[in-house]
Design a binder for these strands. Structure first.
Lengths: 163, 163
DNA sequence: TATTGTTATACTCTATAACTATA
DNA sequence: TATAGTTATAGAGTATAACAATA
């Protein structure tokens, strides 16, 4: 047996026991989510894009002309909180509200050319972000296993926080 | 083939495409975490206990006498934000700060008997909470698969938001 | 000088209520 | 009456800076 390490660990620095916390689904999910989002924030800091903003750009790109309320509901964002979120994207010239023929209450959302260009760049970066965590999961198989399990967790969930 | 349903789905109510979002690790993790926490909030609303508070009670119970800063660091809570969090638990008579012999700057954290009693009840309820999601995952195997993958995701992460 | 706990403060995210203009 | 978007506002959670007491 080897000697104790050079730097002996004093009593007060022993590892803190987390006990069952580390086998709680919610606690572990939260820690993992924060780790992944921290990487996202770091990567997209220069672009000044947060995860929520990215998801909004993505949904608009995939569903051009969709009404504001439907975009927010799909992402689980309350329509009341969605307003300033889109205001920022619009002010930055990335997305825009267009009038809807036949319903003057509604706004149809579209990306601007600048928004589409940005989204393309973001998607390229996202690939590296995903690759980092796919690697930690031991490759594509681990990744799809995780996604499959997470989607099972979401089975039967209603549209969440959305009003 | 049956007729179209009584309530025909107008063009404007087609499903919103989320595209690659649903196969992004971060996005899916976030949605799953929110679903699990929503169940936690619902279950522990009557006890007026939030996930963070539960984790603090748990760590103190597992490490009685641990210094405040070490508890907060273990949970990734900044010591500055930990103060009011513990204030609430102390004001409710669930936890307490005790002086440390030999270091008058520090506080050693302990649960009160009331805190220990509450934690026992919480742990019993947590079991049902976990069981709900374990079932969605198809049983214990799915649960351990998920926990294993999440822990792989956390490999090499430093203590997070803690200062 | 460094560390522990603290205060003050600000920013983001999320939540509710109520308004407006249309339908 | 109901709906789409909006405003105002409040509450969590989290971030930084700076202080007092002690080491």
């Amino acid at each position: 047996m080897a000697d104790t390490p050079v730097r002996a660990v004093p009593d007060t620095e022993r590892d803190v026991a987390l006990g069952e916390l580390t086998s709680l689904i919610g606690y572990t999910l939260r820690r993992a989510q924060l780790a992944v989002f921290a990487d996202f924030h770091h990567r997209f800091d220069a672009d000044d894009i947060r995860p929520g903003q990215y998801s909004v750009l993505k949904v608009i790109a995939l569903n051009p002309g969709l009404r504001q309320t439907r975009v927010s509901a799909a992402l689980g964002i309350k329509r009341t909180n969605f307003v300033p979120l889109l205001d920022i994207l619009a002010a930055r010239g990335l997305a825009e509200r267009r009038p809807v023929a036949g319903d003057r209450r509604s706004s149809a959302l579209h990306l601007t050319p600048a928004g589409e260009a940005l989204l393309e760049r973001l998607d390229a970066k996202i690939a590296a972000h995903e690759a980092k965590f796919t690697e930690r999961l031991g490759g594509i198989d681990g990744r799809y296993q995780l996604l499959g399990l997470l989607h099972r967790l979401l089975q039967g969930e209603p549209e969440p926080k959305a009003e």
